[in-house]
Design a protein around this nucleic acid. Sequence first.
DNA 1: ACCTGAACACCGTTCAAGT
DNA 2: ACCTGAACACCGTTCAAGT
Lengths: 193, 193
Amino acid sequence: MSARRGEPLTHHEISATALRMVDAGGVEALSMRKLAAELDVNPMSLYHHVENKTALIRQLCALAVSRLELPPDDGSHWQDQLRALAHAYRSLARLHPALWAYVQVHPEMIGREDGMWAVLCRILAAAGVPGEDLLHTGEALYSFVSGFVTAESQGGLGGHAGGDVDRTFEIAVDLIVSGLERHGGSGARPEAP
Amino acid sequence: MSARRGEPLTHHEISATALRMVDAGGVEALSMRKLAAELDVNPMSLYHHVENKTALIRQLCALAVSRLELPPDDGSHWQDQLRALAHAYRSLARLHPALWAYVQVHPEMIGREDGMWAVLCRILAAAGVPGEDLLHTGEALYSFVSGFVTAESQGGLGGHAGGDVDRTFEIAVDLIVSGLERHGGSGARPEAP
DNA sequence: ACCTGAACACCGTTCAAGT
DNA sequence: ACCTGAACACCGTTCAAGT
């Protein structure tokens, strides 16, 4: 009977449409009623496929996270692998900027993304970060990159004349790598002249 | 006539109450109607003192930002000044965590906080960051620290066993300082022992 | 000048009823 | 099983009317 053609609303179709709406207008532009309208369905029908709005957004986050392309553990320098991870994360954030900004404010939506943490910790270990600092350092780096991509996607960067955000990202990643080279075991130890 | 005692709703009293509500339950817990209830006033009365909800939140942000205690330019090392600035920013964020998370997603709410940018750029110049990289580096650092304090206030850090967030912040700031010492002109140049 | 009630166009969600 | 309409308790905001 539903206004839509025969098929009864797939899980996937709901998520895809919702994600499109979030991409277009931010999470605050997603309402169950507008989503239903977009799907040409009665608002209440959605509740047979999704527990509630929060659960729906959680699904969107999971969908987005699953697209993160983790760099493989080839034999390359940890510096290159760390750069690759940072770039992969930034790319993901740029795919769904509004959703990603939401994630930073609601980290419980994705939990601690397992694959990424394993890769990050492996790289940091290779960089010579001592075991007792591994998780702290990983968290620091993750929050740094999260902050950057959020600022980027929300217009918090590039305000100045000729703002070249790619260059800012390059400098940001260089700064982290340099810091690790100094702090970790592989670089120079503090003792200044 | 109003339910409240004689006085006609001061600007300040509205902001203070709203900020208290945001601190207690997040920005999403602030509604014009609940704020009016808290003030014991008709919801519509608020619109004589505030243009709309967005303008009200903007005022809250300005209020919070004005409490940032910028470190003075004593003669101390740029490293110490940078640490002081980072700590001041973190302290501010911890005063109003929910509002600060909101600010990161809506950077236009505070604009580019002028005093802070001047101090940050001065410190980076003292660190030997070349002029053409100054703004990029400043933006990178600002986004890093923003990311950290947002993650901290939203529970994105300290998930692991014995999570000591102060220690994570210490490591995070050390990492930035080390990176600058390497990249800038005043610290030890790469040449390792 | 300041306040107010009613109204409008929205929300998320529940529930009893329909096929 | 799946869908639906009516309803409830909320929103922000406008506007004409009150003092």
